[in-house]
Nucleic acid binder design. Structure first.
Lengths: 154, 154
DNA sequence: GTGACTGCAAAAGATTTGCAGCCAT
DNA sequence: ATGGCTGCAAATCTTTTGCAGTCAC
């Protein structure tokens, strides 16, 4: 974890930004909750546990900065809030998500599923792809299992 | 166009909703601006031209209703607003978008590009796909051309 | 002391809700 | 007269901004 902080620190410095204590606390929260898809408010509450004096505006400003530096990706699952997701180290593309419409759980997929599709887009539509967002909505493993008893017993 | 209104009317009736004048005006605006990706506010302003007495809240309620009935899809390109996009007749899946990061234009892609990928998701992740959202961010045809002179003349 | 950064409070937007009235059945 | 639907205004929620104070150099 420390080396990831270091790396982010360097990224900030390379653009003459500083890794202030508030920013570091925010990054640590993101690292510690990498699997969750935290909203700004979520991050704020978690950061506040370690650094109670921090302001919500600072969290927003930090997340926006990290977003510009491509350290995090800002995503939106259609509920009213933006969520912030750390990029995996060296990940060139945004990863994909499986959102369960029953329980709301979110699973991540790191594989690059879209290589062929992107080639098609570049060739056929003449559109130069820089990034993508792919989210599947459906029913997760757990909720599928949960649904079976109700059906089979009827 | 009329037959599409009829169809939507039937869809509403089948769930015992009515196609009131306000709702019809809203649907017409959506039909007439099918290529654009209108925000609720955009729709409101356009509806107001034909039916000045309509309220913004009604537009929101109508759009939400249409969204539940899968007549429109609610999408979010990362700016702060939701946009509403008519589903093509008979379209089983949501269509895809190419968003230009230079000029902001949005192009639609009807082709189903994700058949294979969905099979993979269902098989390998055991996730039952119901719908998906795929957006590519990049540089559109026009902006690519616009960029060439600046590079080649240097 | 200068410029980057912060916290707080206020502002700005987008969307939702409460409510009284209306309209068709 | 009932229930769905509407307009308006107020409320809510997320995010941004203005500003005065702080800190590192």
């Amino acid at each position: 974890m420390e080396h990831r902080i270091e790396r982010i620190k360097k990224q900030l410095h390379s653009q003459s930004y500083k890794l202030t204590p508030q920013r570091e606390a925010t990054v640590r929260v993101l690292l510690e909750n990498e699997e969750d898809h935290l909203s700004a408010e979520d991050v704020y509450l978690l950061v506040k546990e370690k650094a109670p004096e921090i302001g919500l505006a600072t969290v927003y400003r930090t997340l926006e900065l990290l977003s510009e530096l491509k350290v995090v990706d800002k995503i939106n699952f259609g509920d009213g809030v933006s969520r912030y997701d750390l990029r995996k180290e060296g990940a060139e593309h945004f990863h994909h998500h499986l959102v369960c419409i029953e329980c709301g759980s979110v699973e991540e997929i790191e594989e690059d599923l879209l290589g062929d599709v992107e080639k098609l887009i570049e060739g056929q539509w003449n559109f130069q792809v820089k990034d993508h967002r792919l989210t599947f909505h459906g029913i997760c493993r757990v909720c599928q299992k949960a649904a079976i008893p109700a059906n089979s017993s009827s």
